[in-house]
Amino acid sequence: MKTLVINGVSHQVEAPDDMPLLWVLRDILGMTGTKYGCGIAQCGACTVHLGDEAVRACQTTMDMIDSQPITTIEGAAANSIGAKVQAAWLEKEVVQCGYCQSGQIMSAIALLSSNPKPSDAEIDDAMAGNICRCGTYVRIREAIHAAASA
């Protein structure tokens, strides 16, 4: 039994050490906002924050988590940057199918938390791990700039 602090709430979880956080969130805790896209750190759909860091939940196994708080898309709005990013996403109509967007938003929040005014190149660097099959990249870039100046 392990205690995970997710979006400020403690959860007691019984799961094997090698089980990725992705499936703990989705299948044990029922928090389905974090998505499965590839399972091999290629797509970024499963991005969450462990402490302040954006990590791939499909690669973050239970034994890698100590007491760091976890933030998922469901808790993103609690943070002022998160709320700004979500608002900018809607303002710029970034979303198409939306399946990648939890991960995109979590990556964008991590970027803006460490770099409040990123350049295009810095956005590219930070966001290149997140695939969008619908091709919303142009608007993702616009929305990050918009959130940065909101």
Partner: peptide, 26 residues
């Protein structure tokens, strides 16, 4: 404005893969 996007930026939207039913296994 699109009618389907608000739930797609806060994780509350459900796609087929997010379905949960009582007693459901995977």
């Amino acid at each position: 404005k699109r009618v389907d996007t608000a739930a797609k930026v806060n994780g509350s939207v459900l796609y087929g893969i997010d379905i949960r039913q009582p007693g459901m296994k995977i």
